[in-house]
Design a protein around this nucleic acid. Structure first.
Length: 587
RNA sequence: GGGGUCGUGGUGCAGAUGGUUAGCACAUCGGCCUGUCAAGCCGAAGGUCGCGGGUUCAAGUCCCGUCGGCCCCGCCA
């Protein structure tokens, strides 16, 4: 490399005209006119057009340039002639007239296009990630990710939080997701686990008096992947002492306001809406409702209980529910459209779907005769339905009907374009149940995690009626995605022991798995609680991506493989031997 | 573990009902060309149709299996 770079490819403007500069970058495009050659030189800051004239010393070398060659140009910045300004480029008012050139490296023809829109298939993008990451939109995603991380760090630091690192090699925990295990060479036959989250460590830090902690930290869960789930992902992990829910909410709301303002220039109002878990389920059929549109679910069980329509009345009398949504303007749906919706609903597990059109402030349906005038009017009133709307009712067990209606609500909203993509609707979902029953494990499991504090008033039901115990847990939701979740923790070792008991974890097991935490809780644990943000999901929303793979530099495929480097891979028998491991086939 | 979908020159795609030289665009290479910015014009090269098996006189096309990408269910405290 003969020279020192003086400017990036994104910064030269009309102000630098007549200056002699040196640019370095990649050949984005070349346009060889036989005489004059134009090179679009690219780096992460932008693109600058370089002009090489036949009388230039650089000309013969410039002839050899191809896509993605790495090259340095020395030259003079000139204003582009009248009518030649490229408004699409930041640097479009000027160009560099090259006097000298140094080809820093040649490049094989790229296997995926780097310029223009993405049209390469994702497996190729992942295999050639080094090329994919050169593309402008991926560079932009990484920049937004970086900026957000900086905002987070500054925000927490400004608010007296300390970033403290916690181990990646930790003890395997019995609760929650499947652990990634790491065999120990020193302790042959024993294993570390990669953290599913730094949960226990951050609680220990509170007990140690660190008061306010945060960390932007990698977490690992060995579960199957999704568009928004990777086996390793990043959390903004937060924990605070001497606080209650409201303190966590206001700190986090402050962070979200700052991130949304600085990254998207969107003003977010605080405090965020609070939605009890039960309300969310009843109105939206899901614990992370998309609040950008209405279409709420209404329970009409009480109204239809005494109707002549057996499907509804019998359902209610059997202790189940009839509920539905009112799809605005969908009264014009054809028979086929309604049949398709019905088929979809059955596919989702419902017994059926009852569709009723609204016309002239009454129902327009063969089912009219089964309902009294009052019942029909009452339902129209409850939904505030208008002419041309379409009721969609499901009669089923509550736990079945509501989620299906929740899915239907989203489906209709998408189909009818009811979702404003420029809206950012955040809310706290609160009052989660502490437990849910796992039929698979035949025991109660923690909805959040086993360190979540029960609501004090429900403590007496912990062992007698666990399903009725509420948790001091909360989720932050944004546009139908859960972006953060947390709780006030148990800071009393007796309650923590009871919690393990309720979860069917024996004293012995609790002691062996979490003894250190139970122990620590006895040595003066402050009241504490916290939250963890899904950092990747947050970046996904901020960048408008539909997969977290696009906001992670080196992600895994749906089958948890890295196509670029070929992980996971076989290891040598020596490596296995050293760890005391043996691969058993056919299990 | 289950379901859906895709796999055709380097890349993105087209190839009804099986039928003989597998087509298009972009990229690549060569030629022409001094103001383009998705440069243009002319020409060339480039394909075991993911892999394996089967049906058939004949398979990119039909069947079975398998591998891989993506989406979803289960799973993800």
């Amino acid at each position: 490399m003969k020279w020192k770079r003086t400017h990036s490819c994104g910064e030269l403007t009309i102000n630098e005209v007549t200056q002699s500069v040196i640019l370095m970058g990649w050949v984005d495009r070349r346009r060889d006119h036989g005489g004059i050659i134009f090179i679009d030189l690219r780096d992460r800051y932008g693109i600058t057009q370089v002009q090489v004239n036949p009388n230039s010393e650089a000309y013969n070398e410039a002839k050899k340039l191809r896509s993605e060659y790495v090259v340095a140009f020395k030259g003079v910045v000139v204003a582009r002639p009248e009518g030649m300004i490229n408004t699409k480029l930041k640097t479009g008012e000027i160009e560099l007239v090259a006097s000298e050139i140094e080809i820093l490296n040649m490049a094989a023809t790229p296997s995926i296009p780097i310029t223009g829109e993405i049209n390469a298939s994702e497996d190729l993008r992942l295999k050639y990630r080094f090329l994919d990451l050169r593309r402008a939109d991926m560079q932009s995603n990484m920049i937004i990710r970086h900026k957000t991380a900086q905002i987070v760090r500054n925000y927490f630091s400004d608010n007296n939080f300390l970033e403290i690192e916690t181990p990646f090699l930790m003890k395997s925990t019995p609760e929650g997701a499947r652990d990634f295990l790491v065999p120990s060479r020193v302790w042959r036959g024993k294993f570390y686990a990669l953290p599913q989250s730094p949960q226990t460590y951050k609680q220990i830090l509170m007990i140690s008096g660190f008061d306010r902690y945060f960390q932007i930290v990698r977490c690992f869960r060995d579960e199957d992947l999704r568009a928004d789930r990777q086996p390793e992902f990043t959390q903004i992990d937060v924990e605070m002492s001497f606080i209650d829910e409201e303190d966590v909410f206001s700190i986090m709301e402050g962070l979200m306001v700052r991130v949304m303002k600085e990254i998207l220039n969107v003003e977010i109002k605080t405090p965020f809406q609070r939605i009890p878990y039960n309300t969310a389920m009843e109105k939206y059929g899901i614990d992370r409702p998309d609040l950008r549109f209405g279409l709420e679910i209404h329970n009409i069980s009480d109204i239809v209980k005494e109707s002549e329509f057996k499907v509804f009345s019998d359902t209610v009398k059997a202790g189940n529910i009839v509920a539905g949504i009112c799809a605005p303007g969908c009264g014009s749906f054809s028979r086929k459209q309604i049949d398709d919706l019905t088929a979809w609903t059955k596919e989702a597990g419902a017994k059926g779907l009852v569709a009723i059109k609204v016309k002239e402030n009454d129902w327009d349906s063969p089912l009219n005769k089964f309902f009294s005038d009052n019942q029909r009017k009452e339902i129209i009133k409850q939904f505030n339905a208008n002419d041309g709307d379409l009721f969609l009712f499901v009669a089923d067990e509550k736990n079945n009907a509501l989620p299906i209606l929740g899915d239907l609500r989203i489906k209709i909203a998408k189909q009818q374009n009811l979702i404003n993509p420029n809206l950012y609707k955040m809310a706290w979902v609160v009052d989660f149940p502490l437990f849910e029953y796992s039929t698979e494990e035949a025991r109660y499991v923690a909805c959040h995690h086993p360190f979540t504090s029960p609501v004090p008033g429900d403590l007496d039901k912990l062992l007698s009626e666990p399903e009725k115990v509420r948790a001091r847990a909360y989720d932050l939701i944004l546009n139908g995605l859960e972006i953060a979740g947390g709780s006030i923790r148990i800071s009393d070792s007796d309650i923590q022991s009871k919690m393990f008991k309720a979860l069917g974890i024996s004293d012995k097991e609790a002691q062996s798995k979490f003894g250190f935490l139970l122990d620590a809780l006895k040595y003066g644990a402050p009241p504490h609680g916290g939250i963890a943000f899904g950092f990747d999901r947050l970046i996904m929303i901020l960048t408008g991506c539909s997969s977290i793979r696009d906001v992670i530099a080196f992600p895994k495929t749906a089958s948890a493989a890295s196509l670029m480097d070929g992980a996971p891979s076989d290891v040598s028998s020596e490596q296995l031997l050293e760890l005391g491991l043996k691969i058993v086939d056919g299990l």
